[in-house]
Design a binder for these strands. Structure first.
Length: 569
RNA sequence: CGGGGCGUAGCUCAGCCUGGUAGAGCGCACGGUUCGGGACCGUGAGGCCGGAGGUUCAAAUCCUCUCGCCCCGACCA
């Protein structure tokens, strides 16, 4: 493709609404254009990379035995009401009405639609298993779309759904999908990590996320270098923390005055104790009333763990009024001892084995010291509520966990029978007995993967495409339009490369060399072939890789050969 | 949705505090000089200052309301 005939406009300025580097570079390189918050046009150059990603995903899905189909983007509300998700998904569902005021939504995911199709078509265990996938625009009315394609409201996703007669069959497909996802991200040359994950709103039992490691990732993951354990911090476990306080339980319960000390830092400063001697008391609201959660003062609580322990539908930090009502004190002085009313208390294992803690006294400007479980307060509900972080002990071996940031580019779930039960998607077994089908589902963010690739592959001058995702493989630059020799040779080499089946982009614009080099760096095409008057006078052209920039002068007649060599790696 | 910030030319921004008829750089068009890492000179086009209402002789500027966008939190491929 000749640039002069293409639709590509780069910019020098970084757009004022782009925060992360992949977003900035995609806009500057003329790959995407924003239509509204989280809603983008994929411009021709961007669309090519997106299509490359889709091709890779298709190839691996097909190879893993999945079958492609295309489901509607618009879903009737009735299907979503069958699983209750019309309400559970909440405002994330982009809803609309048709002319008859019937409710519809734009599909954010397709469990309902695919299950509806399957329950009509499939009746027998003999027809199982199968795995259906599509690549389609999804719609989620995100509370906060951001970072360009990283969290968009309309975004391309590959979603697959497998149906089985029983868990063993699901396990096989799940494993095949896991392997296929690994191949996809390896094919893209991305540095990624598969981690244990929380299954979230989609539901189900086991689930794994595929994380591209990047500073700007919105997720945190921990991993163990010794045994390979890796998990999203939402899900991660760790070895029990070493006992924080002495075990003597000799100290007496004493109320101490702590005026204005509403934070852990305030209290440790005032009392001269370490933060791990404090117990943080967090007040949460659930649909079944308030709950207190206790955790060691130097650590954070993992709300996902609390939710699943409580089995709650909704969980949020209590507001000031609720805290006042439940503890009888303003925010900052809550504690488990001497509460004005009976409240459910859940305590983290991190504080179970230790004693002589400091807690809030449930009145303004006061804390207790020397608190001991059993003697001063009875705690019956113990569980793991810890938000694991770097430096914690690996739960599987004696290694130490490292903390990384990651971009969630894929997520696979064992759904079990959650949807098939709600929607009566059943089959008859060989005894003629009816069972709900066992399901799996497998999502992969197309645009997000491309954005993640840029996060991982760029420098101060622009994108450095991994070859498999590059919009074109080779960029031919005619450094000037004024020199007939240069133009003639560049045209010829461009045609030759096309004949070789190479995807080649040709900068044939009448621009100054500096502009062309800057743009070349920005759009990041992996292999560059420069034809300039100076070297051509000596019968040479210049071949280089975007990644290292090292320029090799080669005789014109060897140029194609060298380019092919570089492409081959 | 809570907290913060911003809407002025295609892009990045100044002007606003202290009201007086709209600015710069880049980009774009034309002419000229240039031509291996975003050249230079000249000329020019381009803005109901996000929208509505109000105060005022006079509003980009002050006030009210609205819409949009961005950042921090809960959500997720």
């Amino acid at each position: 493709m000749r640039w002069s005939q293409y639709y590509l406009f780069t910019t020098r300025e970084v757009p004022n609404d782009a925060e992360v580097v992949s977003h900035q570079l995609m806009v500057r390189a003329g790959m995407i254009r924003k239509a509204a918050a989280g809603i983008y046009t994929y411009l021709p150059l961007g669309w090519r990379s997106i299509m490359k990603m889709m091709d890779i995903v298709r190839r691996e899905m097909d190879a893993a035995g999945a079958v492609e189909l295309m489901m509607p983007a618009v879903h009737p509300a009735e299907l979503w009401r069958e699983t209750d998700r019309w309400d559970v998904f909440g405002d994330l569902l982009l809803k609309m009405k048709d002319r008859n005021q019937r409710d519809f939504c734009f599909g954010p995911t397709h469990e309902e639609v695919v299950t509806d199709a399957v329950r009509h078509d499939v009746k027998s265990y003999r027809q199982l298993p199968f795995n259906l996938y599509q690549i389609q625009n999804k719609f989620r009315d995100e509370i906060r779309p951001r970072f360009g394609l990283m969290r968009a409201r309309e975004f391309l996703m590959k979603d697959a759904y497998s149906f089985h007669a029983g868990a063993d069959s699901l396990d096989e497909t799940y494993e095949a999908m896991r392997a296929a996802y690994c191949r996809v991200f390896e094919d893209c040359e991305l540095e990624y990590s598969m981690v244990e994950a929380q299954s979230g709103a989609i539901g189900g039992s086991a689930s794994h996320e595929f994380m591209v490691l990047a500073e700007t990732g919105e997720d945190a993951v921990v991993s163990c270098a010794s045994c390979g354990y890796a998990a999203n911090v939402e899900k991660a476990e760790c070895r029990s923390l070493s006992a924080a306080a002495d075990r003597s339980d000799s100290e007496e319960l004493v109320e101490v005055s702590t005026p204005g000390a509403t934070t852990i830092a305030d209290v440790t400063g005032l009392l001269g104790v370490e933060a791990d001697r404090l117990v943080k008391t967090l007040v949460y609201e659930t649909e079944e009333g308030p709950v207190l959660a206790l955790i060691r003062g130097d650590r954070d609580l993992n709300e996902a763990k609390l939710v699943s322990f409580l089995g709650a539908q909704h969980l949020k930090m209590a507001g000031d009024e609720v805290v006042q009502r439940v503890t009888g004190a303003p925010v900052g002085f809550a504690g488990p001892v001497g509460l004005p009313q009976k409240v459910r208390i859940v305590a983290d294992n991190s504080i179970r084995e230790s004693s002589n803690f400091v807690v809030g006294a449930n009145k303004a400007d006061a804390h207790y010291t020397g608190v001991n479980w059993g003697r001063d307060v009875d705690l019956s509900e113990w569980t793991d509520l810890l938000l694991v972080t770097g430096g914690d002990g690996c739960p599987r071996c004696d290694g130490i966990l490292e903390l990384h940031r990651g971009i969630e580019v894929g997520h696979i779930f064992k759904l079990g029978t959650k949807y098939s039960e709600d929607m009566q998607c059943t089959y008859l077994d060989d005894q003629g007995a009816s069972h709900p089908m066992t399901m799996g589902c497998y999502g992969l963010g197309i645009g997000r993967s491309v954005a993640a690739a840029i996060e991982q592959n760029h420098d101060e001058n622009g994108i450095i495409w991994p070859l498999p995702l590059a919009p074109y493989e080779v960029l031919v630059i005619a450094l000037t339009r004024k020199d007939e020799q240069v133009v003639e040779q560049a045209d010829r080499l461009y045609e030759k490369l096309i004949e070789q089946g190479i995807e080649v982009f040709y900068d044939d614009r009448d621009e100054r060399p500096g502009v062309k080099f800057k743009d070349a760096d920005l759009i990041g095409i992996p292999v560059r072939l420069v034809i300039g008057a100076r070297s051509l006078a000596e019968g040479q052209v210049e071949v280089s890789l975007r990644r290292d920039g090292e320029k090799i002068l080669v005789p014109v007649e060897n140029a194609i050969e060298r380019v092919l060599e570089l492409l081959a790696g």
